[in-house]
Simulated assay, not measured.
Amino acid sequence: MPTIETTRARHIDPVLARSFRVSARCGCFTQAARSLNIKATQLRKQLAQLETQLQCSLFNPSDNGVSLSRDGLEFQAHLIALAHERDLPVIEQPLIRLAVAEPILHDILGRDLISLVRRNASVRLDIVTLDSELSLQAISADVVVWLAGTDSPLPGPSFNVGEPQRLARLGYVPHISKRYSRVAARPESLDDLADFLLVQWQHDRQLDAFNPWNSLVDQRLAAVVRVHAYELMLEMIRSSACIGLVPHYLSQLDRGLVALPGLFEQPMERQVWMAVNTESRGQPDVQMLVELIENTFNERREWFQA
């Protein structure tokens, strides 16, 4: 059988050599493609090109993915001997900083951000959750998504940003779990709420937009749960027969919840805003993140108020 000479290994395209090294390390073409931030089909083409140049097969299929063939092991040894593993620089990925309101991250953006990192395992993404106006003022980020009143995006970030973009208007109504409420017994007035346990996310307690709900909760001498975590509030509604104030889209996101409209005469609304740091808005990775957020909200347009 032909052997791979060191001189031939020395003249291999560094891109092909890197694709081989990552594939050998991962033992899985899909994971290797994610690490290289390329499609699996492109990786396979590169490896096929490399095998053509070397005139041998470098990988064998195995029960757990792929393993190096005898020629693959030999080629790997030549690369190590040529110090490719040490001398080829690691391409540093720019750090993208995203600051996002906790409910928006949990309900709307989380799934698409997970898809982003599944497609691109080499991404450097720093995600900070915003749970108060104070945290919004304290952070610095490349992209920030926050909740504000319906009149303006203020108060907004304290660092320099471009013109804020309105992404959605959210209406808030009390919700209850379907499994804890028969249709005939669901509350239709504020007086009907006396027989139900209420749950409140503490962050909402400071918002003027939620005064009707907050006043009701503050008047309670019993049957009130206050929590500091948004996700815990949702779980209390789902699993503890609580009624809580959440965005209207929750009944679209979770079919086990039902909205209770008409309990309050005054509407309770907030708007979702996005802005980009003026210093980093031209970076391709930042633009990629902005487009992802815009597409996510566009795809869920029917969830939001007009």
Rank of each mutant, 00 (worst) to 15 (best):
H84D: 10
L257W: 13
P103W: 05
H84T: 01
L134M: 06
R205V: 00
L245I: 05
Y249V: 07
L82W: 15
P247F: 04
L232S: 00
R18Q: 12
A138L: 04
L58Y: 12
V145P: 04
D204L: 07
S158Y: 04
L54Q: 02
L221E: 14
V272N: 05
E102N: 07
L167R: 04
T6F: 14
A40I: 06
Q287D: 08
S57Y: 13
F59P: 11
V225G: 04
D107P: 03
H228K: 01
R179L: 05
F20Q: 01
S122A: 13
D13C: 03
L154Q: 15
H11V: 06
E231Y: 04
V225K: 09
V276C: 05
L50V: 00
A101D: 06
P164E: 02
P284N: 01
V22W: 09
F75V: 04
G262I: 00
S152V: 06
M288H: 15
L68I: 00
Q49E: 12
H106Y: 00
Q283G: 01
H175D: 02
P174G: 03
Q31S: 14
H84W: 15
V15F: 14
E231M: 01
R238L: 08
W303N: 05
N120S: 12
D151Q: 13
L154I: 13
E188F: 13
R166M: 09
G110F: 00
E133L: 02
F159C: 05
M274A: 06
I38V: 12
S158F: 05
Y230F: 08
L190W: 14
S135C: 03
L197S: 13
E85K: 05
D218A: 11
Q76I: 06
A168C: 06
P247C: 00
S35N: 14
D208N: 10
G262S: 01
A121P: 11
N298K: 14
R169Q: 13
V145N: 05
N60K: 13
Q305R: 13
D71N: 11
C242P: 12
K39W: 12
A33Y: 10
M274S: 03
C28W: 13
L82M: 03
K39N: 13
W273G: 00
